[in-house]
Every structure is written in C-alpha cells, then in structure tokens.
Design a protein around this nucleic acid. Sequence first.
DNA 1: ATTCATAATTATGGATGCAGTATTATATGG
DNA 2: CCATATAATACTGCATCCATAATTATGAAT
Lengths: 224, 224
Amino acid sequence: MNARTPTLSLAQPALYEQVAEQLRSKIFAHELKPGAWLDEQALAADYGISRTPLREALKVLAAEGLVVLKPRRGCYVTELSEQDLDDVFPVMAILEGMVAQEATRRVTSTNWRNLCAIHNELEQTAAANNVDGFFDANQRFHTALKDIAGNRYLAQLIDDARKLLKLTRRDSLRLSGRITQSLAEHREILAAIEVRDENLAGQRMHDHLLSGRAALARLASTNR
Amino acid sequence: MNARTPTLSLAQPALYEQVAEQLRSKIFAHELKPGAWLDEQALAADYGISRTPLREALKVLAAEGLVVLKPRRGCYVTELSEQDLDDVFPVMAILEGMVAQEATRRVTSTNWRNLCAIHNELEQTAAANNVDGFFDANQRFHTALKDIAGNRYLAQLIDDARKLLKLTRRDSLRLSGRITQSLAEHREILAAIEVRDENLAGQRMHDHLLSGRAALARLASTNR
DNA sequence: ATTCATAATTATGGATGCAGTATTATATGG
DNA sequence: CCATATAATACTGCATCCATAATTATGAAT
C-alpha cells in the first residue's frame, strides 16, 4: 500500500449518489410532495445529466422507501398512511430503547459530560422557547447516544426509520406543551443513565418515543 | 377503472428486479462468495442482457447490504465480520421478540391452531433428525408469527436482517444438540403464547435468537 | 534481479438512441 | 350529449456507444 493508491478513497461520491442526496433533500423539504410523480427527463435536464444515473438514484431511494417504483408507470414519492406511522413508530421506539440501554452499559465519564452538555442546550433552548434549537439539540442527543452504543447496524436502522418519518412534515415539538414534556422525559432518561440503570434508561427512551407518536397523533386530529 | 387497466398490475417484474433476484440466489447459494467481484459484462453476457439493468440491480443489492459498490472499482459481495454478526443479532433478537409479543396480543384460535400445526412439524422433523425439514418448518413458524403480528415494517426489517445473515453459510442447526435445544425453546415460546403472556413470549423469543447466535459462535470456533 | 516509469488493456460511469407500453386526445356512433 | 373505440403522444425500459479512470503488462534503469 503506497501513497498513490488511497484505499480509503476520499473520492467524490458517484453521480447517482449525489443525485440521490439532492432528491432526498427535495423530498424532505416537501419540494417533492408525497404522491408526486418524479419526471425522469425533466429532473435529468434539471441537473444537466442523462437519465441513466438518475434512474440509478431512484432505485436507491426506492430501496430506502422514500419513493415507490411502479413498473412502466414511473416513480412516485411515498405516501405514509397513519397505519404506516403506527407500524414504524413502535419499532423505532424499541430500537431507540435498545440504543439507550446499550449506551448506558458503555457510557464513560467523557461521554457522560458530553451528554450533559447537550442536555443543557435542551434546557436552555426549551426555556427560551426556541423550537428549532431544541429540535437540533434533541437530534444531537440521540446521535450521541447512538455513537456511545456503538452498534452500527442498529444506528443504520434508526437513521433509515427517521428518514421515512421525515416524509410527514408534521413536527410534534410544535405542539403546545410538547417541548416541556419532551424535556421532562429527557431528564428522566439522563437520570437513569447517570445511575447506570440500563433497563430503566431503555424503558424510558422507549416510552419517550411513543409519547412523541401520541403527540403527533394529537397534531393530526387538530389539523383537520 | 376498467378491465384494460389492471391497477393491481400482475405484470412481470422489471428486468432489473428479476436480475436482482437471480443474483440474490447466487449469493445465498455461495455461488458468488463473500468478497467476490461481480463482473458486470460477464454477468450481463451470462443473462443475455445489457449492462444497464444489471447495474440497476446492483444498486438495489447494495441498498440491501448484500454487495458493496466501490466507486470506479466495481461491485463485491459483502463480507460479514464477527463484529457485524454481533451487531445484527441483538437487533434481530429484539425485533423477533417484538413480533412474538405483538403476535401473542393478537393471536386468534385459528392462528393458534396453525402455529401448533407448524410446531408439530418441528417436533417430528426433530425426532427424525431431519435438519432440512426442521429448518424449513422453523422458517415457517417465524413467518406465521410475523403475519399474526401484522406489522409490515417490522416484518420487512426482519426479512432484511435475515438476508444479511444468509451471507454466512454457517447454520447453527447443524451443530450437535442445537436442534434439541432449539425445539425446547420453541416449546417454551409456544407455551407463553398459549397463556397469552406477551411479555414472556417476547422475552423467550429474544433469548431464543441470542441462543442461536451463541451456537453460531461455537460453530465458528470449532471450524477453525 | 528488482524497482520504478510508461504504455496498453480493461472495466466502470455516463450519454444517447430506440422499441414498446401507458396515457391522453380525438373522432365516431348511439 | 355521453360513451366507446381509435389514433396520437409521451414516457419508461433496455441496448449500444463513448470517455475516463484503474489495472495490468512491458520495458528501462539502477
């Protein structure tokens, strides 16, 4: 192995991957709404590329569940039903619970300080009623736990599930009182980690996720 | 909607899907071994098709984790490390545990009779030391539970994980004594379902999967 | 003989072109 | 005026072709 052949290729990702990422952003931003048809040649022309890499990108997105490919009929952005949410959320709750459990087992003093730092941001953004800041810190808290848990497969599944859930633009944190409740739940989770009670931490994280689902359901019923 | 436009298209799957399925079989049969390079034009020539649908199939397999795509360097069958197995198995144990729990909650008398019928096959094939028969009935038992649980997302994750595990040809059931132990565990799971103790059923299924992992690990150490 | 540089070969990534099927528009009959 | 049949259009799916990067083979120099 010499300097000329970088095995850890920092090479730019393939074109189809770049396109897939662009499309993901468009889907998450609801620039491409659920149910919308993806016009291959229009998109290809848009990006100034041919249909070949674009179609490969669509295959990837289909595997992630973000779009559905109807043979001979084209590609459409996935529409999540309430039933789908009811299927995905409990699974995600279990998986996030497992992360919390595993992380509690493996947490070091360095990790712990980092978690506390992020939690402080949660406290402060919540006090300032800064929803976006809370959302961001919340995301980083869960990411930090995944890193501590150290199970790449588990982390992958959770990331995939989160991508799916992003298809619904609804955000439970915008529900009145939800931030306060979410913060309280986080405090309890952190407390369980502090005393190294892995089962309790797992259980509380699990319930935390389901509590988020319930909030989302309330949001759905008020929004109609 | 008229007879001319079958919305439930029974149309044959796209070529890239057929190819993906063919390749999956080859990978599972270890005709294509972990680490092996997939020669695009050779395979395309083999199937008598062009490289385009073949490459689309490879994207799908990559998303499933069965192959890895190295930019500008080609496509290789995924090699699972022991670490990967240690990551995947606990997750699968959790998921299968959730299936058992959910199925216990929803099982009907009809379901129950079906489960018992399959379990009887387990008993008989085990008594006859029919490993392949036991393997098959075992598969159908788990599938039946997934159907009863009725969570499509959960079922999908488990199927994906099982595909990954098929990359290792090792089969814990071939380990001496494993069938007897597996059968005993199944009996306990069934008993928990019978008394509708969902938590116990989930716990026992979880442990059953981990017991399978342990057997696999023993197999790995004896095989070297 | 071994190592490095250079040339030839080969494979991947992407673009273009074409056939077949879905969809839409048009026309004809009731 | 509406429904059905037919024609026109448009898009998907696949094949072929080309450019570029990677690998291998060849040759020269130490």
